[in-house]
C-alpha cells in the first residue's frame, strides 16, 4: 500500500519523534509513505472566512500533487490534517472557491477535491485494521493505563472531518487496545487544551491543561497520548498541578511493534 505523505513543518523540527516512529511503524505494517516532493507549510490554522483564498493555496498544492500521483494523501499532525481536509472539502463543495483557486493555479486540469485525505489513525483503522496491528505487536504494552487526548482539530466540525463520533470517539481507545494497553476514558479528551493561546494567554492555557491532566489522573491514567504537536507541547509545558508523561501515539506504536 503506497500513500502520498504530507509531514508538515513541525514534524521536521520539534516533532521529529511523531514522524520518525510513524515511518518505522508503517514499514512494519506494509504501508509505504511517499513524502510529497515539494510541500509547503499548510498555515497551521484553517482560514474560515469566505474571502480567504491565498491562505488555502498551499493545501491545494499538496492535494493536487497527490492527485497527480493517483494516491491518497496521508497526514499525521492534527493541525495539518484539519487544514488540508477542510480545504479539500471547500474544493469539493464551494464553487466560488473552486473557480478562484483554479484561476490562480492554472493547472492542466482543474482541482475539484478528488484526493482522499487520510489521517494516520484513520489509516491504522480503515486501511491496516486494528486486528492486523494486534498480530504484528511484539511488545504488547500490557497493564499500561493510557488516556487518549483527541483535542479539537481531528474531530470538529464533524460533518467535514468525518473522523469519529465527535462527542464519544473511540479510534484512539481502539488503537490503545490494539497495542495491548488499557485505555482510560476522560471526559476532557475532546475539550480544548488552549494550545492556540499558549503563547499569549498562559493563564488560560494552564487552566485548561490542568483540568485535562487532573481528570486523566483521577481516572488512573499513567500517560496521555496525542497526535498533535501543539497539544503535546501545551499539555507538557503548561501543566501546573500535576505532571503526566505526554507521548505521541506513534512512539507507542513503534515500541509495541518492536521498532523503537
Amino acid at each position: 500500500m503506497i500513500l502520498s505523505y504530507y509531514p508538515g513543518c513541525t514534524l521536521k523540527t520539534k516533532a521529529q519523534d511523531l514522524d520518525l516512529y510513524a515511518r518505522k511503524s508503517a514499514e512494519v505494517l506494509g504501508v509505504t509513505m511517499e513524502e510529497l516532493e515539494e510541500w509547503q507549510c499548510c498555515g497551521a490554522v484553517y482560514p474560515m472566512a469566505s474571502d480567504e483564498i491565498a491562505t488555502k493555496l498551499s493545501a491545494v498544492r499538496a492535494l493536487e500533487n497527490a492527485k497527480e500521483k493517483g494516491q491518497d494523501l496521508l497526514t499525521l499532525c492534527s493541525a495539518c490534517h484539519h487544514v488540508i481536509k477542510r480545504v479539500n472539502h471547500d474544493m469539493q463543495t464551494n464553487a466560488d472557491m473552486q473557480m478562484k483557486v483554479n484561476n490562480y493555479l492554472q493547472l492542466d486540469e482543474p482541482y475539484t477535491g478528488e484526493t482522499k485525505v487520510v489521517h494516520y489513525l484513520e489509516m491504522l483503522r480503515d486501511l491496516v485494521g486494528f486486528d492486523k496491528i494486534k498480530e504484528k505487536v511484539v511488545n504488547p504494552l500490557k497493564g499500561k493505563k493510557i488516556a487518549a487526548y483527541y483535542g479539537c482539530l481531528l474531530l470538529r466540525p464533524s460533518d467535514v472531518l468525518q473522523f469519529d463520533n465527535p462527542e464519544n470517539p473511540s479510534i484512539m481507545e481502539d488503537f490503545i487496545r490494539s497495542i495491548g494497553a488499557t485505555p482510560v476514558e476522560t471526559p476532557y479528551r475532546n475539550e480544548c487544551c488552549g494550545g492556540y493561546v499558549s503563547m499569549e494567554n498562559k493563564k488560560l492555557a494552564q487552566k485548561k491543561v490542568d483540568l485535562i491532566i487532573s481528570s486523566a489522573m483521577e481516572k488512573g491514567a499513567e500517560m496521555i497520548i496525542t497526535a498533535c504537536p501543539l497539544c503535546m507541547y501545551n499539555l507538557d509545558a503548561n501543566s501546573t498541578e500535576h505532571k503526566l508523561p505526554i507521548v505521541y501515539f506513534t512512539e507507542l506504536l513503534a515500541e509495541a511493534l518492536g521498532v523503537k
Binding site: C9, T10, G43, V45, G195, M199, E200, M232, Y233
Partner: peptide, 25 residues
C-alpha cells in the same frame, strides 16, 4: 501580534505550529 514580539515569547520546546498559527490568527 507583531514579528518583533516573537523572540521574547520563544521557548525551547515551542513547536513551529504555535508560531505559525499565532501569526495566521
Amino acid at each position: 501580534l507583531k514579528a518583533q514580539e516573537i523572540p521574547e515569547n520563544l521557548e525551547e520546546k515551542l513547536p513551529q505550529q504555535a508560531i505559525v498559527s499565532a501569526f495566521r490568527k
